[in-house]
Structure formats: C-alpha cells, structure tokens
Write a protein that binds this DNA or RNA. Sequence first.
DNA 1: ACGAGCGTCGATCCGCCCTA
DNA 2: TAGGGCGGATCGACGCTCGT
Length: 269
Amino acid sequence: MPTGQPCLEIFAQCVEAIRANKLISRESRQDKEFHFQNWFKARLGKTGLHFEAGGRNTYPDFRLVASTDGFEVKGLAYPGREANYDCNSQVPSGSHNGRAIFYIFGRYPAEPDGDSYPVLDLVVCHGNFLNADHDYVHKNKSVKGFGSYGDIMIRDRKMYVAPTPFGLTTGTAHNQTLILPVDFRVDSRFRSVGRLVRREAQKLIVGYTFDLRTNTLKPESVENPAAGTEHNFVAYRLKGSAAEAVAMRPPREVIAEVAEAAEATEKDE
DNA sequence: ACGAGCGTCGATCCGCCCTA
DNA sequence: TAGGGCGGATCGACGCTCGT
C-alpha cells in the first residue's frame, strides 16, 4: 500500500493513464508548452493531492500543498532532441527553495496527425539525478549603457542546457521509469530495474567573464571539494510494466558529448 | 560528393512579476 | 497601474557527421 510518498502516487497515476491510452490534447497548433503540462495536471488531479499550479513563470510548475514536493514538467517531441534539453533559466536540482523537486519528462510524437496523441514514454526523476548541487541560486543581471548612444541594454540571460534522462541512461526509451535516490522508500507496487551512479566532477564552474571586444567567454573554475563523490539512484517500474533494465550510458560517451559541446562553443570564440 | 538526420544556437512570442 | 524586465517554451537556420 502507499507509503504516503506523493511522487509514487503521481508516477503510478501517470503509468495507469498511459496504459489506459489517455491522450495528450493540444488546444491549438500554436500550443507548444501547455499540452503535456495539461496532461500531467489531469493525472495530478486524479491522485486527490492538493496542489498549486502557479503561473506561467513559476518554478516548479506544480507544488503540493500538504508536503514540500514540487514537480517540473518537461515535454519533448520524439523523434527530436534527445541528449539534452533547454532548461532556460532554472538549473535542474533536487532542491529548490526548500522544496524537493521531481522532474517529469514525457515524450510525444513530433508530427502528430491531429490534436490528440499519446505519451510515448515517461521518466519521473528526482532532481538530484540531474544535478545534486543545492547552493547555486540563479540570477540574471543586465548592463545598461551599451552601444554608441549608450541606450542599449545587455540582458545577461543565462540559459542552461542539461542532459535528459534519455541521454544519460539506456533502457528508458519507450518505457515508464521512476528514478529516485537509493535511500528513498518505495512500496511493493514497484520493482527495481537498475542501479544508477552519478559521480561528481573534478572541477566546479564558479563564474565567467565575457570580453565584448574580442567576444571571448572565459569560465572560472575551482577544484570540487567533493570530486569523485558518488550519488546513487535506483530506477523503478511498476510491476506489470516492461522489466527492461536501466543503466547509465557509458560515462565516456557522456563525457565525449560534453567535450564536443564545449569544443563547439570554443570554436565560436 | 552529397544528402539525411541530428544537435545546437539564436530568434521569437508572450504571460506574468515587479517597480517606479 | 503601466510598462520594463524576466522566464518558459518551441521553432527555424545552419552546420556537423555519417552512410551511400
């Protein structure tokens, strides 16, 4: 029976809806951000948990009332971008303003026939799986007085690009998977389908400077005091779902991708 | 050599917050 | 209270890679 952990109920409700072929429906072709959120909202409603949906610019998208859990929804078109996603101005993390944050990644057909289409796969993961740092607080700043007339503002709008669970792992495509920290209690409805380890990097980026004359961006990093620390997670499925194992993609592959991305950025400079 | 496919970057739109 | 500022989201152009 339920442990009282809301994320378990919510995940179970999502899986049930996918099994029952509950479709995403979009209001219009221009609806590029609410269709999947609405689908999730309906599932959240079904759990009976009280929640607040907040406005368009709130993070996370949904916040529970009785507990300090928050849920951030990410809809991705499939086939499409898979390795990473634009999280714009919110760095993913397992904790934000005192709330535990869970991410809901759902994929839907990139070119659906009509305005109703299925959820192709789903990953619900604790934010720590994407980033275990809880200290960084995002702020955008702007610089006024740019340009020959001194009346142009520069928006330093940091936009983050983070790996998706589909990019980090194998076995998550075309399934419904829940990824939680290893010490997180689950109940008998769930079965483990893999152990996932994320290891902290050698260096931490703590700043950067941009030279407007040369268009060079210089990152500033420090040694990570927790370098090498392992964060352990477990992938779960509801019994009755496919038992396909979930594993980390080989780190080398992930590192190569990150290096490629960094190289591409450097080339611009 | 060339085209398909994929990923990245910058553009764009628009709702909401905040402050003057 | 108006509008400047901020943030979420996807789209389109482009360029790289890989297979034929």
